[in-house]
Nucleic acid binder design. Structure first.
Lengths: 94, 94
DNA sequence: ATAAACAAGTTTATTTTATAAACCAAATAA
DNA sequence: TTATTTGGTTTATAAAATAAACTTGTTTAT
């Protein structure tokens, strides 16, 4: 029996966000939008979900007069991602 | 920019089906159902989608008096799966 | 100074997808 | 003979993803 891939991570966009955050440690909204090619709305919604799940921490600050929304993985998010990757490897025997 | 993971393969259940078919070459409905833990209805629907996409070939035959539905990857399906795996690897730098 | 365009998002509505429930036909067991 | 199981399909419901519309404030051009 195959193990279940955490559905909170598995969605197209959330997986992209999580893998980006694994490699860069911190990323802001615009960067994530560029890299994933997502619409703002979709990105906003999916970031909320990851945040509500406790997988990422979202910080809003002012840089000069502009707002900046940046995200980073939490410890829980890192663990969830590692587990996800392990299961994925078992799927694809990598 | 991240490449897009083929959404036809990326769904939880369809990915499970495809990875199983990569390793076993041929599998019947019951086997897929056991291995994926899916409901019959969901499995039926997702097999249809993969079939309509040309990624798998579904064969229905009689074994004795019982019907048997078995599936195998098409060449197109194999290619799509290889591409999917390559993109996934690039996500997770494996 | 004011209007037009832009940035950085959020909210809401629509579409797509996944899942489950109900159903069906044939075979086997009690 | 009447349940029960096997092997599914179809249809209805729930959840998710996506896009479109909107908001708030900023910069730029006139």
């Amino acid at each position: 029996m195959l193990k279940e891939l955490n559905p909170l991570i598995h969605s197209q966009l959330r997986l992209a966000i999580m893998t980006l955050l694994v490699s860069v440690e911190e990323a802001d909204f615009s960067y994530l939008k560029e890299q994933t090619n997502a619409t703002s709305g979709n990105l906003s919604v999916q970031l909320d979900k990851l945040s509500n799940a406790g997988y990422i921490k979202i910080t809003k600050e002012f840089v000069g007069k502009k707002t900046r929304t940046s995200c980073r993985l939490t410890e829980e998010g890192k663990r969830a991602m590692e587990e996800y990757i392990e299961i994925l490897k078992s799927y694809l025997n990598l």
